[in-house]
Amino acid sequence: MAVSFVAGEVSDLCIGKPALGWVPPSATVREALLFLKRCGENHLTVWRERYTATATPADGAAGAASRCLGKVCVVDIICYLCAEENLTAPSAALESPVSVLLRKDSGALIRNVERHCSVLEALDVILGGAQNLMVPLRGPGAGRSKVQKNALGFCWITQEDFVRFFLNSIGAFSPIPAFSIESLGIIQSDVLVVEYHKPALSAMPLIKQALASQTAVAVVTDDGKLIGEISPTTLANCDETVATAIATLSAGDLMAYIDSGGPAGPPEEAIRAVKARLAERGMVGMLELMEEVPTSDASSSSSSDEESPPPARYGRSGSYSARMGRRSEDAIVCHPWSSLVAVMIQALAHRVTYVWVVGEDYQLAGVVTFAGILTVFRDELQPSEQRQ
């Protein structure tokens, strides 16, 4: 197969992408949370030191690995607040340094590639285990001018960017896109599952795994039928008070709590019910967390000499699923006989990195991920002598 279209620069995938937001490892968890709310980004990078006005994009790509320590998101913060040692004093936990949120392998999840790296080379890095590629941005006069003061000059490239790229060139892979996902062997049967009536708190280890694998936790009936999901993507668009619901509700009730409100968050009756349960269990710290009023004029330590980020894109516990016109109970599903291209379109349309696979009776059969989909295209791009 001709691979000329994947020989182009990976920088082509950066068009229109914003520069990364960041905080130093000394910033508090609360400061990182406020920054995430204000800037409207899903992830925030943690950097050992800041770039200066003398840095150039080329310098940055080479030296970024020693400076970028990892990334954090709202889900990391929610999981941290729900840790056993923090349930009694979540407000105090928010004052911890943001470095406590970083996984031991955080650095391995982010890889740096140069702008002139080919799409194929970058794809191999993603399939090698990286969740995000960090690519230098090209600004006006790049290559001869200095980066603007206080600008990092990098953007993310994700699995979603590669899937969109291949969908735009889907005709080059005919007839593979019309094959069923079952025939292609990309249905993963090892999925993260919690039963509907189980405590949501018991699913926290699974939520952490889902965040790492870029999937979700399936909520199933006693006989294994899919009835919904607890998605890190949905939780990332909630505020920190959803930790109180996780601490008190079942997995099924948590789905309903998240989906019960629009941008303004859950209705007052749902909030009162959670408060009542917290009071019954003597969880005073979690009650105080619910009573805290976000400080709108607070700023993270990384934005002291920059323009203020735009207002938050979501309100209190306003869920992503509600804004996208679906609920957690409306998990995106396909069937073993669904075609590869149909699953790609489904996932991209709903901005998810996975699609659940179910049988005719909604029995959960597995999941298809972007990583599995990208592997199909990578195999097709192998030289014919290597595939034989």
Rank of each mutant, 00 (worst) to 15 (best):
M1P: 04
S4A: 13
V6I: 11
G16Q: 03
A19K: 06
L20S: 05
L20E: 00
W22Q: 09
V23R: 15
P24W: 10
V29M: 07
L33N: 05
F35D: 11
K37H: 15
R38L: 14
C39W: 03
G40S: 02
E41N: 14
R50V: 00
A55P: 00
A55E: 01
A58R: 10
D59T: 00
A61N: 05
A65L: 15
S66I: 00
R67S: 13
V75Q: 07
Y80A: 04
C82L: 12
E84C: 00
E85P: 00
A93N: 05
L94S: 00
E95I: 01
S96A: 13
S96H: 12
S96R: 11
V98P: 02
V100S: 08
V100E: 06
L101P: 03
S106P: 07
A108V: 01
R115N: 01
C117I: 06
V119K: 08
L120C: 10
L127N: 07
G129H: 07
N132A: 10
M134V: 06
P136I: 01
P140I: 03
A142W: 03
G143W: 00
Q148A: 01
Q148L: 01
K149F: 00
I157R: 08
T158R: 13
E160L: 11
F166P: 04
F166K: 04
L167H: 13
N168W: 09
N168Y: 12
S169L: 12
S174Y: 11
P175F: 15
P177V: 12
F179A: 11
S180I: 05
I181N: 01
Q188G: 08
S189C: 08
V194Y: 03
Y196H: 14
H197P: 00
K198H: 14
A200E: 03
L201Q: 13
I207P: 08
K208W: 07
Q214L: 15
D223L: 02
K225A: 03
K225H: 12
T234Y: 12
L235N: 05
L235I: 06
T241K: 12
I246K: 01
I246G: 05
A251V: 11
A251I: 13
Y257N: 06
I258H: 03
G261E: 00
P263A: 11
A264T: 06
A270F: 15
I271D: 12
I271K: 15
I271M: 11
V274T: 04
A276L: 10
E280D: 14
V293C: 14
S296H: 10
S303A: 06
E306M: 09
P310M: 13
R316K: 15
G318Y: 04
S319Q: 01
Y320P: 01
A322H: 08
A322S: 12
M324A: 08
S328I: 04
A331R: 08
I332F: 07
I332Q: 14
S338L: 04
L340D: 08
A342K: 12
A342T: 13
V343D: 07
Q346F: 12
V357W: 08
V358C: 08
D361C: 02
Q363L: 14
Q363I: 09
G366F: 07
T375S: 11
V376E: 11
L381D: 04
Q382H: 07
Q382D: 09
S384H: 12
S384M: 10
Q388D: 03
Q388S: 06
